[in-house]
Structures are given as C-alpha cells and as structure tokens.
Write a protein that binds this DNA or RNA. Sequence first.
RNA 1: GGGCGUAUAGCUCAGCUGGCUAGAGCGCCACGUUGACAUCGUGGAGGUCGCAGGUUCAAGUCCUGCUACGCCCACCA
Length: 875
Amino acid sequence: MTEIPKKFDHAEAEARWAETWETSGIHRWDESRGRDETFVVDTPPPTVSGSLHVGHVFSYTHQDLVARYQRMLGKNIAYPMGWDDNGLPTERRVQNIFGIRCDPSLPYDPDWKPRRDKGKKDPIEEVSRRNFIEACSIITEEDEKAFEELWRRLGLSLDWSRTYATIDEHCRKISQLSFLDLVAKGQVYNTESPTMWDVDFQTAVAQAEVEDRDRPGLMHDVRFAVKGGGEFTISTTRPELLPACIAVVAHPDDARFKPLFGKTAITPLFGAEVPILAASHADPEKGTGILMVCTFGDANDVDWWKQSDLPLKQVIGMDGKMVPVHFGAAPFASIDPAEAQRHYDEIAGLWTKQAKTRIAEKLGEDGSGPHGEGAALVGEPKTLDHPVKYYEKGDRPLEFVPTRQWFVKILEHKAALLEQGKKIVWHPHYMRTRFDHWVEGLNQDWCISRQRYFGVPFPVWYPVRENGLPDFSKPIYAGADQLPVDPMSALPAGFSEAQRGKPGGFIGDPDVMDTWATSSLTPQIMSHWGLDEARHRKLFPMDVRPQSHEIIRTWAFYTIVKAWMHEREIPWKHVLISGWILDPDRKKMSKSKGNVVTPGHLLDQHSVDGVRYWAARARLGADTAFDETVFKVGKRLATKIFNASRFVFSQLDRAGVAEAMPGAEISATLDQAMIARLRSVVKQATEAFERFDYAAALQTAEESFWQFCDHYVELVKGRSYADEDSPARRSALAALRLGLSVHLRLLAPFLPYVSEEVWSWRLAGEGRLASIHTSPWPTAAEFADVATEIGAAALVAAVEVTSKIRGAKSDAQKSLRWPVSALVVRGAEDDVAALRAVLADVLEAGHVAAEGVDLAAGAPSEGERFAITVTLGEE
RNA sequence: GGGCGUAUAGCUCAGCUGGCUAGAGCGCCACGUUGACAUCGUGGAGGUCGCAGGUUCAAGUCCUGCUACGCCCACCA
C-alpha cells in the first residue's frame, strides 16, 4: 500500500504523472472502436513561431477539459497534436535568425549549413530554395520541441503518437489530394488578374489575410482639363498613380458632372486622354464627387477595370517601386509624349511613397494646370486618417498587381456555406454571427497560391510552347499515386528532365499553397481522407473544433469550405471559441506590446493545476484578465484536495477499510443527506459539461467540495474517530470514501495532477481504472443503493446550527472546542425533525452537552430556518 | 460607417426561462484554531447591479435609447 506523503510536491508529481500517462498510453486513440463511441477533437495546430504565450496555455486547457470529461465518460478520444510550421511566419523567422534569403535561381549546395552567429551588419546571404527549406526545417524542429515540452507539462491529454506537421509528407499529400479533388470538381482555376500583393514578401495574399489599418495620408485636390475647354477637380490620396489613370468617373445621378459624361479629360503632367464616365461606385458626398480610376489604386478600380474595355497601365512593380514605362505608344499614349516621359523618368525606380511626394511637388508647379495655366494642385494637400489595406503580417500597404494565381471558387457558394454554418453548433452561439458576416462580405475568391518557398507545392506543370512561353491554360496535373510531389524536381508523366523549361517541354509550377490551404484540412489530415476510407469514417465529421475568434474568417471558414467542397459535409459538430487573455489594463496581451508572461515561469510558480484552474474559470468566448490571485486560488484548491484525501484515507486505513463499501452501509441521516446533495451536484456538473460549459462545472464541483470539507467532514469527525466498529462509524467511513471519490472525479479534468496523485493512493483499480482519468465520470447510478430519499435538508439544518454555535464561540472569543452548556432551537416541525435526525453529530461537532439541549417546534427567527440560542459553558 | 460582445462589492467573477432582504473567492479588519490543511474556521466592513426611460404586482434579470470599453467587419477619392 502506498504510503501517503505529508506534503504535495507539485513539480515532482507533474513530472512523474506526465511520464506515467505517456507510457501507459491512456491518451491514445483506439482505432478499432467505432465512430459512435469516439470523441474527436480537431486540435488547433499552433503556428510554430518560436514564442509561447499564456494565451496558448489558456485555450489549449479549454480543449483538454472537454477531452478529459469525454474520456471519463468512456469515450475513445481522438485528440492529436499538429504543428503549423509551413508558411510565412517560419520563413520570416528563419531569415532573421540565419540572415539568409531565398534565391530560387541558385543551385542546391549540399555542404551549406546555416549560421546563427551573424551580426546585423553582415550581408544577407542568398541561398537556394532547397537550402532555404532545410534551414526552415531546423528551426521548426526546435520550436516544436519547446511546444511539446510545455504541452506535456500542462497535462494536455494529447495522443502524441498522432502528431503531424503541416509541412510533413502526409500533410503535403493530403493538401495536394485536396487540390486535385477541387480540380476534378471544377472548383479551382488559375488566372492572371490584379491581386492583392505584398511588396515586401513579394507574394499574393488572400482577402482573409488582409486588414485595414488607419494611416495618416494626404489628400490632394488636382485639376484636370476637359478636352475642348473647361476643367474639374478630383481629390486623391495617391497622386503617384496619375500616370496609371485610365478614366475619370462620377455618379450617374450627379448633376454637377452630368454635362461632362462622354467627354474626354486630359491628365495633368502626363497628358493622357481619358474618358469621363458615369460609375455607380462614385459617391457624390466624398471628395469632390469625381475621381480618377487607376490601375490600380483599390478594389474599386479593379472591379471597374474588369468590366471596362480600357487598357491596363501598370506602373507599380512587384517590388513596390515605380516601373519604367515608355510614353507615346499604347497604353501610355499622351498628347505630349516627350513631356510625359520627362515627368515620369523622375519617379521611375522610386518607392511609391517617394513617387507620391515627387508627383505632388510637380503638380504644384506653375504650368502643370489644365491647358497649361497655373498649378494643377489646388492649395496645400490636407492631412487625413484613412484606412489602408495591409497584409496582416506586413509592414507596407498592399498593392494590386496583375499576376497569375490559383483561386478556389467560394463566391458562388456563399449561400451553401452559410447553410453549413447553421448546421454547426457554435459555443458561444453568437460567434456564428461573425462567420455569417464574413461569408456575406466575401468579395473575392480564395487565392491559394503564394510566391514563397516553405509550403506545399502545387502538383502541377505547364507545357512550354514552341515559342518558349508556358501555356498556363493547359496545366498538367500529377497523378494521385505521385503525391506528394514537388514539380520543381519531379517530372510529369511522359516527359524527361531534359525537357524542363525547353520549347515543347514543360515547367513546374514554382508557387506554394497558402498555409490555410493545408490547415483547412486538419480533420482530413487526421482522418486520412482520400487514403483510408474506413479510418476517415471513424473520425469524420469530428466532434469539436476549439479555436479563437480572430481566426473564424480563416481557419474555421476555410475548413468549412473544404469539408463542403470535398464531401458536402460539415467538418465538425461543435465549434468552441475561447476568448483572449487581457492584461490587467484590459488590453489584449501580445508580443508587440511587451506585456507577455512566459508560461514556464507561471507553471513553476503556481503549479500546473493552479494555472489550469485559472484557465478553466473563463467561460468560452469571454476575454479574461490575467490575474495572479486566481492562480493562487487554484493552487490552494489542489492543496485542499491533497489534505482532505489524506484525512479520509487515514481514517479508512485506521479502520482497515480497503475496498469500496456497499451503499447500504451509509445508514446515518447526515451521511445520506450529504450524498443526496452530491447527487444534484453531479447532475449539474454533468449538464454543464454536456453544453461545454466547463467553467460552470468547475464552479459547481469546487463549491461542493469546499462545503464537503468545511461542513460535512467536520460534522462526521466524531463518528469517524471512534475506535470501535459500529454501524455509525461504518456509515461515516463509507460516505467519506464515496464523497471524496466523487469529488475527485468531478475535479479531475481541471486538476489532473493532484487528483491523479491522491487517487493513486487508495482508489486506483486495475487496468484502465488505474488512472482517475479513465475512471468513470460520476453518475446517479453510483448512489443507487444509498438511501437518499430524505434529501439534503438534514445537512442544511446541521450546517445552520453548527454555524450558529461556531459564531457564538467566535463572538465570545472562545475556541471552537469550548463547551456549550445549553442549546435552544426552535423551528418548523419538518426542520426540527430533520435536525433531530442528525442531532448527535451536531452536538459532537459543537461540543454541546446533551442535557442542555432544548429542541422543539416553534417560531424561527426572521428570515431564518431556526431560532437558536447558544449558551457557552465553563471550561 | 455597420455588426458582435462586455459593463454586478477595492480585485476576479457567479447570478438559467423576472420574485434578491444581490452572492462567491481574493484582498482588508478582528478573533479563534493549528492531531487532514506552508493552514483552516468564525465574524465584520464593503454594492443606488454603467446611465436614462419603459413594460410588470414585481427588473441585476425583459424592451428602447444613450455612454464607456473590447473585438469583428467596411469600396483606401
């Protein structure tokens, strides 16, 4: 028999049990069991970006609470771990750490090793694509190790044998299978069109990765000439796009400009003749009511350009600089090509920001105005704050640049996707509104190609025409048996390596997929969709998707898209949305604000159970303050569990009770009343967990446990201390054991370490029951043979009288053991009867002389159950 | 500009379909224990439930408007 320790060494217990759980395999998914007895968690694969955050601890604990509850229900838990390591965050980190940059044109150097010792001043080293990817792998491997260590310590009941990484072979295969399936279903296309482009990362980005930032800007009022005489003024924040102006538009109903429609405007400086047209997107209230359309200033320009026959004048390059253009010939026609060229040459090669300033200066010069009179610029540019589109990870505004990209058709499926959203239960329910609004507001198909390196390649080649140019209209797709494939090194069927890049040959698609194109498949990655149908059916659709709310538009949305496109299914039945951690000033904690607390330190200081307790107190969706005192409360609860268990087990040991006693042994009224109350506690906690409200379950269980300790245990001590065996003592011991066992199990999902520790002393059975975490969640069936018909009233009465006695002693500044010589209690007949049934325990606990008791029916005090008079005795 | 959410003791939070003389824990003060308890117990101080209307016999709980904060979204003139 285990010797019961005197003190709880959190750190030691954490290390020991984490190890035991892993070796015993109690967290492993059992592939042989059916779907209906399995509970599947679509674990979020965290972006492996190097730094761990309390926010991680917070939300991953939430999932684990649910998983642990389900495990105790007897479910076969499928709870894998994944790492999202592909994509830009990793590339950016690797570039910084090693001081390198990828140049895909370089050949692979097998002897190259990344170096960390580079200073900031050392030149950036250019490396081949393959070397770059290898460097990425080195970093992600290290990061994943750090994450795993924390996850294990945190007691996440993950199945570590099912770990995946979004860049690994399996994930690349599933991602490419998904792509090919979408090709087969006609849901994906590639096209050259203006796309939001990050000039620093030099890649296309999707709508979901774009955010508006308020930035100061300058509003320029610029005079345009009307051909044949006259002028008007437009307002613009982007004068550098003047050479890209293709039209001027105003609202069709705007009386001010109606006379101009159909006429031709002449742009200042560049002398381009552009039509003046009506366009419904022009807002008469904004600016001067008339604006220029450029290729491309914003999404409006793109939309409008697409439905017009007007030319494309691309002046911004992929690197964010003004590209050299030649004036005179289409599309850069001008009434004075030499003058236009002279102006443009001054800005060619400049960053857009510099070009903006230069153009503004030139517009302010005399002679730039319409028909050569005065300055085109009216007054001084006015400052304003306006929203500017940025890539969420980027530092400079996005530009619209025409490039060839792959798109998934989502716009035409809005209605269907909204329907899918309705089939999923969102917790909290109002989070579905976010999803709905996002879907309703979609205005672009999903651009899934990125001009980057550390990602999943497209399983695609293009034939090269005799003129040496690729024919993008006839992509050659890889066969499913080839996957995963890298078209830059592998060959399409029927071609040889010698034909790569040659006329009549082929080229590989150099792009990689958006990282969401892979993480949108986390359910399919786990279920082996497309590879193992039987396994897929055992895991899909999944039960729950835990995630945070800021990625509803990306992760949740894209996952719903993929599940629907592939199988017309929902990916999971429930979505659980965790809130955010706020620092004490109510700001979101984030790295950039420098207010992040590292999780390791927290766990050292407050114990894992204490930290989990804090996380568990936060309801789904609710943002939570980072509050040190809550950790302490959690740690103390763990200590209380430890000590209460020591007491109960020492009593059992003393009486020689090793096994559970039959419920019929619980014969004393007080004990039955305690069990009666426990019955409703179990019901409440279970109902809370069933609706994923773990916080309410914790509250219920915790409160009940403290009452159990403070009231019941104190009241029953007299009988349990008795030396002689008797029905009264046996009842006390049986009830203590049952009460403790139930409370331990109710609290086990929250405080896995302390509950496992004390469980192991005396309650652990054989096999799966060796762990509390695979022991059955308490149900009413456990109380079936305990007589609980009397209800909890007797316990309530006993507690009330006992509290009064304690209060009287406290008022008199006497010890709680001070004898009571007289106790007078009056109350309703039922209450008096209830009290009479537990009187012996009350007198014992209160040190009340039996001969001084006067208990009878009578009027209680105002608002109370009893009228109680306590008279203290002499020592 | 639109939408979602939150506003309850000094702090962190409970208060489900309206009945509250509004609760818990922490913190604070006083006392008592320390033979399950690096503790625990008893008692105490502390709230016009963001503001203003309304519905109702009755509103922290329902409705309307407003304010503050947070978040999400928005065609950058």
